[in-house]
Amino acid sequence: MAAPDSSAPAPPTPPTDPAVAMLRLLGGFQLSQALYVVARARVVDLLADGPLRVDEVARATGLRPEPLRRVLRTLATEHLFVRDEDQDSVALGPLGHTLLSNTDDSLRDLALMWMETHYRPFAHLWSTLHDEVPAAEHEWGMPFFDWLAQEPERVAGFSAAMSSMMRAVRRDALHSLDLTGVRRVVDVGGADGTALAAVAERHPELRGTVFDLPHVVAAAPALLERAEVADRVDTEGGDFFAGVPAGADAYLACFILHDWNDEQCARILARIHEAAAPGARLFLVETVLGAGAAPGVGALLDLTMLGMLTGRERTRGDWNTLLGGNGFRVDGIRETAGPMCVIEATRT
């Protein structure tokens, strides 16, 4: 399904009244839930071919017309929809296509996952600021990834959300990877294989392995088949704290190290260092605080890490210190057209 041909809206002009600006910020939790409702009901998919009356949308989704009308009116002020009050109809606005189900820049799966896994834990952020225990542990009674692994549906939803985020915000970074001389890549924490499949499609000579926990990487073979790279990219299950596949020319980790604190990152880097020969390359696709085309994304994700995990987003200095102290020489940090950066390093 193709996304509508519409240009991104200009950022809204900040209200001149500070109280009005603060009111918008304070209401953010309500907007998140409204976005979850329309994403879950697939309202945007219904409007892909053109406007509909609100009662038609309500019948198709099983939602009540009057509360739906009010939600749509609110989200129209956020550029997701365009409302015609006289006709009582609704159409997609400039941001609407980002919640379609099957587009390269869709964030629908992320909208579902964040509300189903992240929303409740953030009620405990006050506690986190006092004891430094992630809010998710206060909510679930265990580390987030342990809770996630208890239900296959949670794992599938999380993997889908991370895949959609990769397509939407990591695409430019993956396209900018300099794989000159690389014959084999191991994607450490590669989940369902979305990232390595995208890289392999652009580099037909490349071979690789998607490596992740067995219950996570189980989804990768089907995706690799659909991408027509399964003849060159295989999968392997394991724990990157215990070891990673050896002998590759390069190791790729997309948005992995930001999940973990420095001590845990050192353990992951140690396993990669053990598996890699001197001179092997390491590519990290991560945010770099204060850098990139959309530095606000890094700040938002840093808050996400604070609430959900032990990790954090890092500055250039942080990355240099982390990698340099664990057997890797940083060769460069490349900003891309998107919010992610590519950190290139060499195994010493």
Rank of each mutant, 00 (worst) to 15 (best):
E286C: 07
L26N: 05
A345R: 00
A111I: 11
A270G: 06
A48W: 02
S7A: 14
F241G: 00
G208Y: 02
G290R: 01
A220F: 02
I256F: 05
L129M: 11
D49I: 07
L196T: 04
V43F: 03
P143A: 06
L52F: 06
F240M: 13
S7E: 15
V186F: 08
P94T: 13
T180N: 08
L68H: 05
R271I: 08
R120W: 07
E85T: 07
E263Y: 00
Y36G: 03
G325K: 07
A345S: 07
A135Y: 10
A58P: 00
G298L: 03
F328I: 08
A280D: 05
V54P: 00
H124N: 13
L31Y: 02
D86W: 11
A19W: 12
V288H: 07
R40E: 13
P14L: 14
H79L: 12
H215E: 12
V330S: 05
M308R: 03
G193Q: 13
A21N: 07
A161M: 08
H273G: 12
G298D: 04
L31E: 07
E225V: 12
P67T: 14
E78Q: 15
T336L: 10
T13E: 15
S163I: 08
D331S: 10
A34P: 00
L46R: 06
V297C: 03
N261Y: 02
P134R: 12
P51N: 10
T348R: 01
L323H: 11
L300K: 03
A337H: 13
L95F: 14
Q150T: 12
L309T: 12
